[in-house]
Design a protein around this nucleic acid. Structure first.
Lengths: 338, 338
DNA sequence: CCTGGCACTCCCGATCGGAGAGTGCCAGGG
DNA sequence: CCCTGGCACTCTCCGATCGGGAGTGCCAGG
């Protein structure tokens, strides 16, 4: 087990390195943080920390830099979450309050997060798996052509065209519409299949084909729209990444274009609270020198989606975590209001 | 006026520089292209080209590189558009044919273009200004709450919620729906306002408030949705940009996040055919070392939107133009089919 | 267990010099 | 008049050299 002071030394190293982006030596440490011990003592501590794998030196006789493991310890034990200043909080609220629709909320959130953290922001659209149905509408565009409109409680609207095997009467359609809504409104997507399963049976044989087509499309829409979308922003902040540019930045840009990768990244976070994945903890190879801070957000008590930022492992974890958490909270509020 | 051979020299310089990314000297030129003259002669030609501002040298006694003006001449007079190979064309068609909806078409197009040109691709969603209305639907979600759904001929669906000043009866609603559709279906967005202007008058005074609200929302939707969206991809290709990274790439990334900038970029192109904007010809400052190749595409004879690529001024213009043109053509076909 | 001292290692930046590539100019020849 | 070979000159680039400085590890003493 590491002594109290050694942890203190690790914290100091992380803080200095994050600030200066340069390996930090024993002398500088004792000067900048009042550790009350001599450089030599710190050196011993550093040697111990290095043995344990928390820090490393780029080359002999250079200062130390934290390893992924070091950052991990820092995040878990040494650092809190730095709350935002109240002007910042006000700014967030003002900025998000101006949003007019869901796209706008997500767009603003992503820009906000990128600006606050000066890193790349990723915001997932509210997921539909936990969503409930607010309304289902059926429109006759032509005798044998329907449009299905699905409205969710998060304000998303999805629509599908349906080609019917046979024309369907207006009254039957109205009947179907009414029964459909009475069964599924307020229900979760996952519940819908079992709730509508027996619907065709209660209709005339002539119409069953069409009813089945409608239901099939509805279920398909539910599944498809569960595929989650997301928005990213602040990629220009990648230029602040480090010195050895092209090599570092390229795989990150590539990863950021793969929605699948990003969704996995956010999805992996099981923790109900905030999740921090540091360096190699990220499965994706291109992101092995980045850290991801993510958190769920939602309109009620339950998280409906996630958002987060991607930045260099050498990032200001407390500040980033503070910003991510605060933004998630405000977005949740905004969603709850609408 | 420049002699034939001098133009040939310029072409050779552009080609070599694009290939090697290094200033090209007189000797190398005579070796790689069979110009049938000695390096000394080429040097004279180069001096003349430099006087005219078509090429420049980074420093004394280095090779020459083309200036923006040089590229301009190259594009206008010296280079054709390089057609794609037939395997490439087949690949495009296959890839685009798999698209399932408009989002997918645009998404695939952007990826395709980025891959083909190895540059950043920008694709504008089919614009609605030229679009026509396919269907308007009104749904009663609650006694005094309606949803307006607008379907366009390009397959886009937009919806808005409307809070009515007073409850509206089902029959009135059906009436309104029918009249609205009979007036606007098949019409262009720009025509709609004048076509629906007098609608409220033909209804009972009680309902006029609601009717007006509906119309207002409809018109608003038309205007709002005319704001054009776009999708970009291939940002990872920015890493192939040049040597002096952070400085070059940062403003470009920033510009690419500003949809407004991009829309302006594509929008500026007036030419019905392909437009190439080279370096400083781009208004936006951050893009002064990039070139933009853009072209309109559409489902019929008329262009409904634009697409293009953004890359370093030092790009393979003929190849890029060929790819851009080909992709635009195929996307047009796909849109026309659906 | 902490501390001061000391020798050692290694990076970094500046300096320097040569090689190479490219240029401009000139004088001669078709 | 234009092309050509020759020549001197200019720069950049690259590698080698070399202190300065920061940082380390270790040791002996408190």
């Amino acid at each position: 087990m590491l002594s109290e002071r050694r942890l203190e030394v690790l914290r100091a190293i992380v803080q200095d390195y994050v600030g200066t982006e340069e390996p930090v030596g024993s002398k500088a440490l004792t000067e900048r943080h009042n550790l009350q011990v001599s450089p030599a003592t710190v050196r011993n501590d550093m040697a111990a920390l290095e043995d344990e794998g928390f820090i490393a030196q780029p080359h002999t006789s250079a200062g130390r830099i934290p390893t992924d493991k070091g950052y991990r310890l820092f995040v878990d034990k040494l650092a809190g979450v730095k709350p935002l200043s109240s002007p910042e909080r006000r700014a967030i609220q003002n900025f998000l309050d101006g949003a007019v629709d869901l796209d706008d909320v997500v767009g603003r959130t992503v820009r906000l997060l990128a600006q606050l953290t000066r890193q790349v922001a990723v915001v997932q659209y509210p997921s539909l798996t936990r969503s409930t149905v607010r309304h289902v509408e059926l429109l006759a565009l032509a005798p044998a052509r329907l449009m299905l409109v699905l409205i969710t409680d998060t304000g998303r609207v999805e629509q599908r065209l349906i080609d019917c095997p046979a024309p369907i009467g207006e009254t039957v359609l109205a009947d179907l519409r009414a029964r459909l809504n009475s069964r599924v409104v307020g229900e979760r997507f996952t519940e819908v299949p079992s709730l509508v399963q027996d619907l065709p049976e209660s209709f005339d044989a002539d119409d069953r084909g069409t009813i089945s087509a409608v239901l099939a499309t509805l279920l398909e829409t539910l599944v498809e729209e569960t595929e989650e979308r997301l928005m990213i922003g602040g990629t220009a902040n990648l230029t602040r990444f480090g010195h050895d540019f092209p090599l570092t930045i390229r795989p990150v840009l590539e990863a950021l274009e793969e929605q699948v990768v990003l969704l996995k990244l956010l999805g992996e976070a099981k923790d109900p609270g905030m999740t921090v994945r540091i360096g190699h903890e990220n499965q994706h190879e291109g992101l092995s020198s980045t850290s991801v801070v993510s958190v769920g957000y939602g309109s009620g008590d339950e998280a409906v989606a996630k958002l987060g930022v991607v930045g260099p492992t050498r990032m200001d974890y407390p500040g980033t975590m503070g910003a991510v958490r605060a933004v998630a909270r405000y977005v949740g509020q905004i969603l709850a209001e609408s």
